[in-house]
Amino acid sequence: MNEPLQKKSLNSPTFSLSNKMLRLLWLCCYLVLFRFSPTPLFFWRRFLLRAFGSKLGHGVNIYPSAKIWLPGNLEMKHKSTLGPSVKLYNQGRVVISEGATISQGAYICASTHDYNDPLHPLILGPITIGKHAWICADAFIGPNVNVADGCVIGARAVVNKNTESWSVYAGNPARKVNDRERFD
């Protein structure tokens, strides 16, 4: 199950200096060693992400144009994929389960802000993508969402609530439009 949204304290900076320095180091590494690596060098990008704290299973494929905000908040299970131009804004934790595919241009956002507070403090909300789920092109997954096993999120869909397993969702906001046959 998902953890509740976590509001960051107003008495401290949103992110520590060490977190900011790590992200700066990651950005330099991303621009020099990750972003322009040839597409087939998945092992190289796995190596770099593991060096920055990602937990990655075997056979994970991450395309060089995928943007990852903080590798230490990313866990990807065996044979999962982050496609071209995926934006993983993982201020909060993101777990991508075995065999899940995040297609080109999808945006995974594990944080938001408290709009009722005049200071708009950051709120973290972890995201879990289930086994064999498929997030199609340009879809948006919001904070504190569990995309269930086998679920398909259609192109350009916006998901801000948990989904049912082996279902197909489409639209903005995303609604269940069909069932999906099980194959696991």
Rank of each mutant, 00 (worst) to 15 (best):
P126Y: 05
F52R: 09
P84H: 15
Y89F: 12
Y63N: 06
G72I: 10
I141V: 14
I123R: 14
Y30L: 05
Y30V: 00
S65R: 04
V147S: 02
V86S: 09
S80V: 00
G125W: 12
R182A: 02
P121G: 10
L56H: 04
D179S: 14
Y107A: 07
N178E: 05
T112N: 13
Y30I: 01
G53V: 03
F183N: 14
P126A: 12
W69T: 07
Y63P: 02
W69Q: 11
P143H: 14
P173R: 09
A100Q: 11
F42D: 10
R180G: 04
A155Q: 15
T112R: 08
S18M: 09
N116D: 15
F183T: 07
L5P: 10
N90Q: 00
Q91A: 14
N90Y: 03
K55R: 15
S111D: 01
P64L: 04
K176W: 08
P64N: 14
M1Q: 13
K131A: 10
L27T: 13
A51M: 14
Y115G: 03
V177P: 10
P64Q: 06
G83L: 05
P143S: 11
F34W: 12
L27G: 00
E98V: 02
R180S: 04
H132W: 10
N172T: 14
G171W: 04
G142W: 01
Y107G: 08
L25T: 12
P84L: 13
A170C: 13
R23S: 14
R156K: 15
P38H: 09
L31M: 14
G83Q: 03
N172F: 08
G142H: 02
L88G: 00
Y89G: 02
G105V: 08
K131I: 05
F36R: 05
K20C: 12
Y89T: 05
W69P: 03
M21H: 05
